[in-house]
Design a protein around this nucleic acid. Sequence first.
DNA 1: TTGTAAGCGTTATCAT
DNA 2: ATGATAACGCTTACAA
Lengths: 349, 349
Amino acid sequence: MINAKLIDLATALGVSVTTVSKALKGGYSDVSETTRAKVIEMAKTMNYKPNANAVYLRTNETKTIGVVIPTMVHHFFSIVLNGILEEAENRGYFVIILQSNEKYELEKKQIDLLIQKRVDGILISITNETDDFAHLNAIIKNKTPLVMFDKIAKIVNCSKVVINDRKAAYDAVTFLIKKGHKKIAHFRGSYTPQNSIDRFLGYKKALEDNNIKFDQTLVYVCDKNADFEDGYSNAKKLVQDHDDVDSVFAVTDLVAIGIIKYLNEIKIEIPEQIAVFGFSNWFMSTVISPTLTTIDQPGFEIGQRAASILIDELAEIKANRDVIHQTIEIPTSIIERESTLRKLKTELI
Amino acid sequence: MINAKLIDLATALGVSVTTVSKALKGGYSDVSETTRAKVIEMAKTMNYKPNANAVYLRTNETKTIGVVIPTMVHHFFSIVLNGILEEAENRGYFVIILQSNEKYELEKKQIDLLIQKRVDGILISITNETDDFAHLNAIIKNKTPLVMFDKIAKIVNCSKVVINDRKAAYDAVTFLIKKGHKKIAHFRGSYTPQNSIDRFLGYKKALEDNNIKFDQTLVYVCDKNADFEDGYSNAKKLVQDHDDVDSVFAVTDLVAIGIIKYLNEIKIEIPEQIAVFGFSNWFMSTVISPTLTTIDQPGFEIGQRAASILIDELAEIKANRDVIHQTIEIPTSIIERESTLRKLKTELI
DNA sequence: TTGTAAGCGTTATCAT
DNA sequence: ATGATAACGCTTACAA
């Protein structure tokens, strides 16, 4: 038998569809315990599973949230997704995940698909390309709650979950300065994404606040993809251009690992000659030699909070209450490992 | 306006719902080109998006496939998912992704949810725990096509996409033997998963075929999670137990990287003293020092083929043709890197 | 306590 | 070439 429906249970038991429906949902005072028990029993033996699509048509709820991210082949995003999935599951929501592959056009298309599915709400981390937000505003106008996380657009009127990239970068560079580093290079991301800009600004501010003159030639742009290759090739340039550089703050762990790889190859000692500081705390950072000092960017919590806020807003709307958008900043922290100079230990050795 | 529907377009244009529906779908000969153009125009201005749930109720198709995997925070699975997403998108299907977190009970629950959503078909890679397949057989009985990939159960009657783990392992160990290694340890996965068993059997067979006596004490079980920690701690044991071991074949890159990490720490040279061979070709393998020789397990293709077969079967069923299940073996290959002895290069240096 | 019937948005059959 | 209408599976207001 293919997918039993309410009427199948009803005829099998000789009662009405209404009774079956009420019995299964529970919370109705007007169905006797005995019939209720019988219905539930029968549902189990006939392996009844409610048809979510039909349910939606009546209730206007799909109990589904849609997620659009640039890519899932990315440690950070896969952790974020985990946070989203856990929160959604705990609160009885499905999750549909779509990738934008860092393409604006695809992002638009994916949102369209989610709307066709009539998801109850949408979580999004936008692409680096995205600079027109009409498709996001359309979602909001459509009364579908939207929560942005990680890669957000400040201008869009919705709740957001972010980290403070500027502060985190500031802390990282200050940490290097405190350790005695003076000539600190920065491998930045490309010019458009907000977090790339913010990390750069944090770097610059930390230098200024510590009376170190900002030197544009110490800034290298990783605009390919802010990945391993970028780090590797720019590290090559760096040591050619500046033989006296004593540390690098990289926009991403992947870039930092590219740097480490190159420095290892040409036998420059890390951190004794050049210290390296990453960003994100990917698993890989614990595995590379030397292990990488980095900023922990708590992906799981970001995902969880984003989902939680979205589902809260859904509840508010259902209860006909006003939704107040909020922007949550998840705190980051420095994870100190081998790739930065640890004065004490070095002195002991 | 919240989500325009057919009737909104119809009243706006002064035509019937039927006409609008036909015009939008296309392929109907009985609607004039002029009205058709008008309808499409109006659909655009009113931002009409069909309600997928309502469509399903009529067509019995959700154009959605469900995917259940142990975890997505895993390079291999995230690549597989990419393959699935690409194929599904090209062929006009949605994808709902659920995680089982390696828990049998959760796997069952996730399948239930997919059935409630009335997905057209299901792709699954089962958990290591799963040894009862009633929930999978129920899907099949339910006439929902099922395709298993990577972690499969031979006994379940459906199409499958796999790699030949035994052969791949056999090739890996043969490769080591050809390079002159004689005392080859194996860090295997736990006892239940089929691919862990198969890789072990391939290892054993390669030894036998090359007249190397199988030594049980050279086999270490990574049963925690077949992860980095397992590799690291077992490497410690290995060098204590066998000071003359000359190579290790690891069940997974992650385990291999744990080994490399430990050997690096105690200054054992790789590959000169001990060669290391991984399995899966994770990105990390290209980044670790020395880079890791491994088996390339083409995740993208696995995902793509699995999705393709599933969607093909959907089409067969729709056309009322018989479905013939197939088992596809995606070929693997050896990726040679620094962690195994390369006779020529070493001699040159 | 139980049942009848309308309606959700769409498609498809049958008239016009 | 266009439209009226039934049907998909479910929930719920209302009736019995």
